[in-house]
Write a protein that binds this DNA or RNA. Sequence first.
DNA 1: ACCTGAACACCGTTCAAGT
DNA 2: ACCTGAACACCGTTCAAGT
Lengths: 226, 226
Amino acid sequence: VVAASSTPSETRRTPLSRERVLRVAVDVADGGGIDALSMRRLGQELGVDPMALYRHVRNKDDLLDGIVDAIVGEISAEPPAPDWKPALRRQILQARAVMLGHPWAPRVLEERPLTGPAVLAYIDAILGILQAGGFPIDLAHHTLHLFGSRILGFNQDLFDDSASSRLDAAESAAFAASIAGTLPNVARLAIAVGHDGGLGGCDDDVEFVFGLDLIFDGLERLRAAG
Amino acid sequence: VVAASSTPSETRRTPLSRERVLRVAVDVADGGGIDALSMRRLGQELGVDPMALYRHVRNKDDLLDGIVDAIVGEISAEPPAPDWKPALRRQILQARAVMLGHPWAPRVLEERPLTGPAVLAYIDAILGILQAGGFPIDLAHHTLHLFGSRILGFNQDLFDDSASSRLDAAESAAFAASIAGTLPNVARLAIAVGHDGGLGGCDDDVEFVFGLDLIFDGLERLRAAG
DNA sequence: ACCTGAACACCGTTCAAGT
DNA sequence: ACCTGAACACCGTTCAAGT
C-alpha cells in the first residue's frame, strides 16, 4: 500500500504531468520496492489508463531514468569551502541520508546511465568542492572514478554480515566450528564479528565513514604532492 | 543466438543436471545479456520443457544465485604470500579478467545475496592473503567492506565518460561551451578528458588500478601502524 | 486530434490431467 | 511416480477503433 498524498477523487481531478508521474512513481517504489513499479500499477495509482502515462514518459526506461534523477535532485548542495575534506564529507553524507530514505534507489542508480540534469548538477557540485580544495582537474577526474557509487552515499557491500552479527557469541562459535574445516578464515572472521564490542557491532555507517576517510587521506596525499 | 556447445540432438540426449542447466544459463547470458535469460528461453536452449528446469533449480532466483556462484568459481585462487600487496593485486585482477568475460555478471552479483560455496571460498582466499600479510582480523574485516565490489574486480562507475572521450578536441570544446553556463566544472572536465594525452584516454583499467593502489597504500599505513 | 482499451508477445509459476 | 502442458496472473507496448 502506498501512502498517497491525495484522495482518489483528487488524484483523478489533477491533470497528469511528468513531474507528478515521477513523484507518484517514487512513492510506489518507496512503498513496495522497485518490483512494484509497473506501468500498469502506476496508472492505477494515478487513476488513469496505463497508456496515458506514455504521453509524459517515453517508455519504462525513461520512467526509471526520471525517478533516478528525481532522487538525486533531493540531495541539497553543499557550498564549496577551502577545506575540501569536511565539505565533501558533508555532501556525501547528505547523499547517503537521501538514499537511506529510498532503499531501492542504489540498485536502480547502478543500472541506469546517469545523464539527467540533477545528476550532472550534482557532479558539478562535487567537482566544485574538489576544485575549491585545490585539486587539479585530472586528479578530480580520477577521484570521480575512484569514489564510484560512494559519491552518492552508498557502497556496494558484496557480502552481507548482518545475519552473522545478529548471532550471539555461542551461535557464532557453533557456526564457525561447522565451517572451520573448509573455510578457516571466514570462520575466524565470524568469531571476531560475533565478539561483543570486538568490532563495534558492524555498523554500516561506521564502515562507510571508515572507507571515506581512508580514501580522503590518500587523495589529500596525492593533492599535496601535486 | 547462443553458441551452443552441442547440437540440438545431443542436447536432448544428454540428461539434465543442475550443473548443465547453470552452464547453459551462463551461455545464454553471455550471448544475449541477462534479459535474454528466461526460464522459457533456457528450456528451449536445452531442448526440454521449461517446467523440467524446476527439478534442478528451485526457481528463477535460485538459477541466478547458481550462475553467480558459477562465475565466481571461475576465478582461480592466488596463493597467499608474505608480500600481501602484489598477491591481492593479482587475485583481484584475476577476478576482473573473469568479469570482463561476462559483462552481465557485475550487475547480477550486486543484486543477489552472495552466499554460495564458491563465493565463500573466494572470500576465504582473500582473507588468507590478508592474514599472511599480517592483517589483524578486524582490519581484514574493514578491508572487505572497504573494497566492496572491487574485491571481485569491478567498480561501479556512476558516470560514463566513454562517450565524451570518444569525441575529438573540437567536439569536446563545442560540448563544453554548450554547458559552460550551467555546469562550469563538468565543462572543464569535458575539455580535460578530451585533450589528447592529457588524461591518457580514460582507460577503465588504468582507473581501476589507480583506485586499487590508493586503497592498498591506505591499508598498508593502517596495518603498519597496528 | 486525442484518448482508450483490446490485443500481442512475452514473463514466472501453479496445478490438474495424462502417462 | 513422473512429466507435460494448459492455465493463471502478471509484464511492456503496439495499434486499431472510437470519440
